[in-house]
């Protein structure tokens, strides 16, 4: 029985491990790192992006990086407890948006933690209508709202899913003051729930993603399930970096038809609002800065090699490496823009 011998061998290795528990060099990452993520799902985009980066880091630094899908509140708790660099966190813009939207339990990550390197973008955040909907574009939606029609938008509250709705309300307010009151949220949960609301015609517009909803846009108009993209929130440059095949039967070229400048959701009357869902590291505030440097350097090398980009693009993610200092300043900026939008439409 080989398993038995393996166990014996492990036992020998185990004795060696017990003998040297504490990390030798401060600048080096501990040999066993736990990367907690702000999502509970191991099938979602956060997990996938984290797994891609974790694997690359494991190989590069010759350590063991394990991704644990513990969810937002447990991830922050785990990060709070550990300043040795054995627990790192990865999440997306939702990490600070919860705070901006005033969701209970979300701290200001720029104050409480160190925000680290960005690694990738999910460019797929999108808004859709039913294919037989009278709205064929965002302009139609704004016009209807201005004409006093109530537009119900299905979202998940307090995060990435809501920001597009906030931007729509902000744009409506700028173009047709008062019309923003007619764009209302239908708060719901998973993508399944959002789709279902559209199937039931209990929502006029839903938040979705290129990845999850593209096939629905290919269905015939008389199908209850058929949908139409009206807005992809990503920046034009982001989509341009995607593989030209795009997603499913929709090429990147076609997707550009749904981003700015072809679809305009204005932010201030001049510039269009865009939103890329970016994935980045979050570190414990008291963690040795040398560890951050090690991670930055390792990532820089990984991205210089160019293999990780292929992996990311194959899953329709856009590589987007910024070292920690730059990333932190950039994300802080991004959050300020979003803060302004949220406060401008806030009725309180």
């Amino acid at each position: 029985m080989t398993g038995f011998f393996k166990t014996l061998a492990t036992a020998a290795g185990f004795a060696a491990m017990v003998a040297s528990p504490i990390i030798a060099n401060a600048a080096e990452l501990p040999s066993n790192v736990r990367l907690v993520i702000g999502s509970k799902s191991t099938g979602g985009d956060t997990y996938q992006n984290s797994a891609i980066v974790a694997e690359a880091l494991s190989k590069k630094l010759d350590i063991n990086v394990k991704v644990d899908a513990v969810g937002v509140s447990e991830a922050f708790k785990a990060l709070d407890r550990d300043s040795r660099g054995t627990t790192l966190m990865m999440f997306h813009d939702g990490a600070y948006m919860g705070n901006l939207y005033g969701v209970r339990g979300y701290d200001n990550i720029f104050e409480k933690y160190n925000v680290g390197a960005t690694v990738s973008i999910n460019p797929g955040n999108a808004y859709l209508v039913a294919k037989d909907s009278p709205f064929r574009s965002m302009e139609d939606v704004f016009a209807a709202a201005a004409a006093g029609q109530r537009i119900r938008v299905a979202i998940q509250a307090g995060g990435v899913s809501e920001i597009g709705l906030s931007a729509m309300k902000n744009a409506a307010k700028i173009m047709y003051p008062g019309a923003e009151e007619n764009i209302v949220a239908v708060n719901t949960g998973s993508q399944a729930d959002k789709n279902q609301l559209l199937f039931d015609r209990q929502a006029d517009v839903i938040n979705g993603s290129v990845q999850a909803n593209e096939q629905f846009t290919q269905l015939a108009q008389d199908d209850q399930k058929a949908m139409r993209f009206i807005w992809v929130t990503a920046r034009e440059e982001t989509i341009k970096q995607a593989n030209p095949e795009g997603m499913g039967n929709t090429t990147s070229e076609e997707l550009l038809g749904y981003t700015t400048p072809n679809v305009s959701v204005t932010i201030d009357g001049k510039k269009d609002f865009t939103f890329d869902k970016e994935f980045f590291f979050i570190f414990n505030k008291d963690m040795d800065p040398a560890i951050i440097e090690t991670i930055d350097n390792a990532l820089a090398e990984i991205y210089a090699e160019g293999k990780i980009q292929e992996t990311q693009k194959n899953s329709f993610f856009i590589p987007n490496f910024l070292p920690s200092t730059e990333a932190s300043a950039y994300l802080k900026d991004k959050s300020e823009t979003i803060r302004k939008i949220i406060s401008s439409i806030s009725t309180k």
Partner: peptide, 19 residues
């Protein structure tokens, strides 16, 4: 099956009404 979705996306395969 929520995790199975990961297996498809990992391979770049979309699941949806056309799958």
């Amino acid at each position: 099956t929520a995790i199975l979705i990961g297996a498809f996306t990992l391979q770049g395969i979309q699941v949806g009404p056309l799958f």
